[in-house]
């Protein structure tokens, strides 16, 4: 019981510290803006630890964070192998192909107002669908290895990216287009010098949504058949074998990879669209 009390006390103390920080005169400082959520996260972990230990929850149901951390450290080879299989081979290759194809498609249909008008509502609708359901079909088409996972990812990321690029290419003001006309600029000059740069905030919106979808697709596809490695494989078999701590370690990897993947794309976005009002510093 003391563990529970200690955990709750720690949580309250951490919240109190956050309140103090949020009211302090350093609240605008970068360090504080980072520290507050980190403290909050640590407090949640401590609460989890305290509750699991204090209430003596079986590790088969919910292991304590420290147990998960221990498993994480001792099974890095397995985790690395799964990471390579699922993230690098499945998700990343599918992401690059899917985003690339969507981008090229968007530019290819751009010249036809008719095609754009037809594809945009369909793309918007399909982007909202549970496309992940096609995973078993693609696994049966492309086999158990990473190619089928990449295929699932390609289909999943295609529509959100397509829709965002098409939308982005529409984002120029009439005045900016008139300006290009007064220079007698060609279609491709207008595309490269005006429309593509103006589309970038939208393009990156699509690319960011696609990062999460790529991981979801690669992991779910493994539930429908995979070689004996991969994060989805490990999670689905781990639940059956009651290797719950390993499952949580995989979840931790998935969470870290997901955040890092998103973060990297967001960083590139910052570099490319530094000029956009949402990105300007100050």
């Amino acid at each position: 019981m003391t563990a529970v009390v200690a955990a709750v006390a720690f949580w309250l103390a951490a919240w109190g510290l956050n309140v103090a920080l949020a009211r302090s005169r350093w609240r605008k400082a970068r360090a504080v803006r980072i520290a507050v959520p980190v403290i909050f996260g640590l407090a949640v972990l401590a609460l989890w630890q305290g509750l699991v230990r204090g209430l003596e929850v079986s590790p088969v149901i919910l292991p304590a964070p420290t147990d998960i951390a221990r498993t994480f450290v001792t099974s890095t080879d397995v985790l690395w192998q799964d990471f390579v299989q699922t993230v690098l081979k499945g998700a990343l290759s599918g992401y690059l192909i899917g985003c690339g194809v969507a981008f090229v498609t968007a530019i290819a249909i751009d010249r036809s107002a008719f095609l754009t008008a037809g594809l945009l509502p369909i793309g918007n609708f399909v982007a909202a669908l549970p496309i992940v359901g096609i995973a078993p079909i693609l696994v049966s088409w492309f086999g158990f290895d990473w190619q089928s996972k990449a295929a699932v990812v390609v289909v999943m990321v295609f529509f959100p990216v397509l829709v965002n690029v098409v939308q982005g290419l529409k984002e120029t003001e009439a005045m900016q287009r008139d300006l290009m006309r007064t220079y007698a600029a060609s279609y491709w000059q207008t595309m490269v010098k005006l429309r593509l740069p103006a589309a970038m905030p939208f393009v990156f919106n699509g690319l960011k949504i696609a990062t999460t979808l790529a991981l979801i697709g690669a992991i779910v596809a493994e539930y429908f058949g995979s070689p004996i490695r991969g994060m989805g494989f490990r999670i689905s078999t781990g639940v059956g074998r009651l290797a719950i701590d390993l499952v949580w370690a995989e979840i931790a990897v998935a969470a870290l990879v997901g955040t890092a993947f998103y973060g990297i794309v967001a960083m590139i976005e910052k570099l490319v669209t530094f000029w956009h009002p949402s990105q300007r510093v100050g």
Binding site: V36, P37, I219, M231, I235, E250, I251, A255, G258, G263
Partner: peptide
């Protein structure tokens, strides 16, 4: 402000985590 500073970053992070990994758990 505390809620904003503590929760908002985690809300964003939560969407970058592939939820399917958590589903069986």
């Amino acid at each position: 402000r505390v809620a904003e500073m503590s929760l908002m970053p985690w809300a964003i992070v939560s969407q970058t985590i592939p939820i399917v990994a958590l589903a069986p758990m």
